[in-house]
Amino acid sequence: MKTPALLWSALIGAVASARSMTPMATLSAARLLGRSTPGSLALLDRPLFKFGALAMGAGELAGDKMKTAPDRTVFLGLLARVASAGIAGAALAPRGREPAGAATAIATAVPLAYLTLDARKRAMRHVGQTRSGLVEDLLVVAVGIAVVALAVRHGNGRSR
């Protein structure tokens, strides 16, 4: 069965809707493990970018549990989702389809940010901010890792 061309871009956009830095962190981890992405994106090969993305991903996971953490739908939160989803969506798109992959990921991430925020707020009322955040982290990071791993495998990601 053939995978739809922009499926991985859409799925990484869904990941960005809940955790803006997870797409970049998972892509960076894949690059550090010597895997390449279907789409060509030189930015992912810069060490400062790779390690910076990993640090920002870890920082976001910690910061999300703080009482002062802003909603993901504030302007800067959406801007981070647009940037991260766009870069990740382009990297996971088939070679030559990077702009379409970026657009697909962004078009998925922004509206889903509102839905994932609503789900998180409902979960917070039942189990609290920290517990709901940890569960969301586990789900989002696991999905992010799976999406990147599958995209790299199906896109014939080569070792670098």
Rank of each mutant, 00 (worst) to 15 (best):
A53E: 10
P111D: 13
F51D: 10
L76M: 12
I145M: 00
G52K: 09
V135Y: 12
A103H: 03
K2V: 15
K121Q: 15
H154Q: 13
P47M: 11
D45H: 05
G128R: 03
A93T: 01
V140H: 03
L139E: 01
S9Y: 11
A69K: 13
A18T: 04
T130D: 00
V143R: 00
L78R: 07
R158P: 05
K50P: 07
F49V: 15
G157H: 03
I145C: 04
R72W: 12
K121C: 10
M56A: 15
R125A: 15
T108F: 11
A5R: 09
L33Q: 05
G128L: 04
A93N: 10
R19Y: 08
A62D: 10
P99K: 14
L33A: 05
R46K: 08
P4Y: 12
A107C: 14
G39N: 09
D71L: 13
K50Y: 07
F49R: 06
V141P: 09
V140N: 11
L92G: 09
V141S: 13
L32R: 00
M1F: 13
D118W: 13
A10D: 04
S17M: 08
M66T: 03
A69N: 12
P94H: 07
V110M: 09
I106W: 09
N156K: 08
L150P: 00
P47G: 09
L79E: 02
L79T: 06
R160V: 11
L76H: 01
G52R: 11
R31D: 00
L117Q: 14
A109G: 08
S132N: 12
V127D: 03
L138V: 14
G89V: 10
R35I: 00
R153A: 15
A151K: 06
G96T: 04
P70V: 11
A123I: 02
A113V: 08
P23E: 13
N156L: 14
A91N: 10
L44Q: 01
G133M: 06
R31A: 05
G13S: 14
T73M: 07
A62C: 06
L78V: 12
G96E: 03
A85V: 02
V148R: 10
A149P: 02
